[in-house]
Design a protein around this nucleic acid. Structure first.
Lengths: 212, 212
DNA sequence: TGGATCTGGCAAGACGGTCTGCCAGAATCG
DNA sequence: CGATTCTGGCAGACCGTCTTGCCAGATCCA
């Protein structure tokens, strides 16, 4: 392994390396999203990825690095989906809220592994605690930013801590209802789940603004 | 160890055994509530309890048994506190809601280990998943039962799945705001946290009933 | 007081995981 | 074709945990 940049199987070295990393990430999502980060081992990960254990150390230092990378990938995908959906939605508060919630619910309920990675693992894995707070802050900022557009900057400012509280409450409510729905505990369709979540979102937002 | 029922240190055998079990549970709450169930080991638990490792197997079979016992103890205490507070509260919907929320928030924020055991560990530990669902069902039933008292049985029935959804949303919101507050992410006092949570609870409950 | 029991400390085998190193075969490049 | 490099399989040293077993000292009961 002196010159590590030779093509193999018609694929250049850099691309092969990226493929292996991607395979490890996919296997990581599978294991973490199904059994949790605690069950992620080097040997198990490589076995599922169809790779030699040696290649683990090519892309990662510890299994925690994989946990972080998987979390970042899923939350990045989620944020992008929400931002795109909000931008494309009609320019009124319920439309924006519904678009954001629908994008999140559809993406996460299409793949229950991602639901677990987004809602469960960041609480359980110490390495993800700080990252989770940052994601929550990003989403809160998104909500407050939209509020500025619909209610004016002055109102958004006045909301302050009360708005932070309400945003946290809404995010927690969404997380719980989504995971409960996936568990089969809620006897409603996914479309109704989205509609009801939008209802409560708008209800709470209006209430906060009227109190500010 | 032929006749295992002799007093020692002036304490009968049965009571000594109960003391050791209690010491293990206290140490378990400490470890699980601080570092999570994954960090609970036999040796670490016994060391913190000040007991020989041999006594672990006297009271428990596996560390998971400890996790379950700690969870049951904390959720039992929580349920009892809520039921007691609700019974003593003035007979109007906001008073009942406020009493329940205050009881829960006060008990859990007085001891952040219990917050973690109640809100985080049941998601992370597979053994607790089913138990968590049962606790959620119990609390939902409590809410629906109160709704029957204030809105009549006919209305409570009509609420149906919409009510389950709202109850799940409220529980998730409470969990998230409480943990966020403990993290220091919410710049409000605990009394305000209780008051705002009550606001949203009543707001959502009224909305659900008016829609039913 | 003496035999029995309780107690804490410790050791050892089994197990599963980490990480490094070696090997042989396959594929590439000159 | 021959040298080089990539690849998968596997062995082995190391570590932490589990679980059982043994020991010596403390305490109890007759």
């Amino acid at each position: 392994m002196v010159a590590t940049n030779r093509a193999y199987g018609g694929v250049p070295a850099e691309q092969r390396q990226a493929q292996r990393r991607a395979a490890l990430l996919a296997a990581g999502l599978d294991i973490i999203g199904t059994h949790g980060h605690a069950r992620l081992t080097v040997s198990g990960l490589c076995a599922r990825a169809g790779l030699n254990e040696r290649y683990f150390y090519e892309s990662f230092g510890t299994t925690q690095d994989v946990v972080v990378a998987v979390y970042d990938a899923v939350t990045g995908e989620l944020s992008a989906a929400i931002v795109t959906a909000v931008a494309a939605a009609p320019d009124e508060i319920r439309g924006k809220a519904r678009a954001a919630i629908a994008a999140a619910v559809e993406m996460l309920t299409d793949d229950s592994r991602k639901t677990r990675v987004v809602f469960v693992e960041p609480l359980a894995a110490p390495v993800l605690n700080a990252r989770r707070a940052e994601v929550a802050r990003t989403l809160t900022a998104l909500i407050v930013g939209q509020a500025q557009q619909f209610y004016g900057a002055a109102t958004a400012l006045r909301i302050g801590p009360w708005g932070e509280f309400a945003a946290a409450h809404l995010l927690g409510g969404l997380a719980e209802t989504m995971t409960a729905w996936l568990r089969g505990d809620l006897r409603i369709t996914r479309d109704v789940l989205i509609e009801r979540s939008t209802d409560l979102f708008v209800l709470v937002a209006d209430h906060v603004v009227s109190q500010a």
